[in-house]
Amino acid sequence: MTSGQEMNIEIAKHDDAVVASPVGEIDLARSPSLRNHLAEIFAEKPARLIIDLAQVPYMDSSGVATLVEALQLSRSKGCTLILAGMQDRVHSVFEIARLDTVFTIVADAATAIQDGS
């Protein structure tokens, strides 16, 4: 039980945007897998990456750190990173960490896709 857990993540493409939808809780066991998935997506150099968190009921600081890392990577690669569909408990973590104003956060993935079209 020590090799970490695979994070199930659904990926879809909409024009210039990639929508990545992790499914399940993101904690210390799963954030390494999420980091690997996001690195693979960045390797494809998308213009926009929308991370849809609608199916993520819980996230700890390791998950937040993974997304901060993704934000830094997106800026270095000229990619626009958007977080969408955050549940209240997850949004609360971003508020406490004072990251809710650092990220672009929208209500849902459909809004994020529409905003960029």
């Binding site: 039980m1 020590t2 857990q5 809780e25 904690d27 066991a29 819980y58 209240d88 408990r89």
Partner: peptide, 30 residues
């Protein structure tokens, strides 16, 4: 082991709810 965090969270969540913490406080405790 990181894989054991989820079952501990589940246990704490259940206890917190039964002690009367609301949804946000329960999430914070977990």
């Amino acid at each position: 082991q990181p894989e054991l965090l989820a079952p501990v969270r589940a246990m704490l969540t259940s206890l917190s709810e039964r002690l009367g913490f609301d949804d946000v406080e329960t999430g914070h405790l977990a």
